[in-house]
């Protein structure tokens, strides 16, 4: 059996707030694995711990307890510089608000991770990534000169330019209209089809439904984990009962 891309075991993130009984357990004992090439959605209400989980999976934050292995490597105890290197080489981020750097062209934005990784011929690789998302003709444009969908495509190009094993997306279609959102989602799925593991945190159930597998969270715990269609249908049914 091959090494899973994601291996998470009894992961906890506890925010101390004065005394022990006031502590907030944002992530409270989560375990799951995701194989290479999987597409995984994370759904749940606001405050269920989705964002905290995403930050830990993205190596932006450290768990207070538990094991997190990315591509077979323990990352929960690494120092800041090692985490930066992991983010640079193994993870691509796609944010709801694009987070392109202003006053830099699309190409320069895409090139940035390669520069931090000291990769040679970064210009050429960045141009290739931009071509992959269909924006080769926009390479000299600054973010202010691009539409929302184009900005998100540039952001996706930036995320995949270092050929990471995983794309972490936080509401990737949240700031886009449904047509553009659909196009961006299709792009993400086609990248996933080429072997990159895809993790998408979303409120949008139609987005969740187009993935292969969905995890539903509540109060820092996983309450459902299975094929997307089943979990989403059960979720809709339980929402309907509650109202």
């Amino acid at each position: 059996m091959t090494t899973p891309t994601l291996f998470v075991d009894k992961l906890e993130k506890v925010y101390e707030a004065g005394s022990a009984d006031l502590a907030v357990r944002a992530v409270d004992g989560i375990s799951f694995t995701a194989q290479k090439g999987e597409s995984l959605g994370v759904i749940g209400p606001s405050g269920c711990g989705k964002s905290t989980l995403l930050n830990i999976l993205g190596c932006l934050d450290r768990p207070t307890a538990g094991t997190y292995r990315l591509d077979g490597r323990d990352v929960q105890d690494l120092d800041d510089d090692d985490l930066a290197a992991i983010r640079n080489k193994h993870i691509g981020f796609v944010f709801q608000s694009f987070n392109l750097l202003p006053r830099m062209t699309a190409l320069e934005n895409v090139e940035l991770p390669l520069l931090y990784g000291s990769v040679k011929s970064s210009r050429k690789l960045a141009a290739e990534a931009l071509a992959r998302v269909g924006l080769a003709d926009r390479s000299k444009h600054q973010p202010t000169e691009l539409s929302g969908g184009q900005k998100q495509r540039v952001a996706i190009a930036r995320a995949l330019v270092t050929r990471p094993s995983m794309l972490l997306c936080d509401e990737p279609t949240g700031a886009l209209d449904s047509k553009t959102g659909r196009d961006v989602l299709d792009l993400l799925l086609s990248i996933n089809a080429e072997g990159t593991t895809l993790v998408v945190v979303t409120h949008d159930l139609s987005v969740a439904r187009s993935l292969r597998r969905v995890i539903q969270m509540r109060d820092g715990r996983i309450v459902a984990d299975g094929p997307a269609a089943e979990v989403v249908s059960a979720f809709i049914a339980s929402e309907a009962r509650a109202s």
Partner: peptide
């Protein structure tokens, strides 16, 4: 601040 966050997310070390 946000730019710094983005740079860190794509792999900038603190020294960078």
């Amino acid at each position: 601040t946000r730019e710094i966050g983005v740079r860190m997310a794509v792999g900038a070390r603190r020294v960078d």
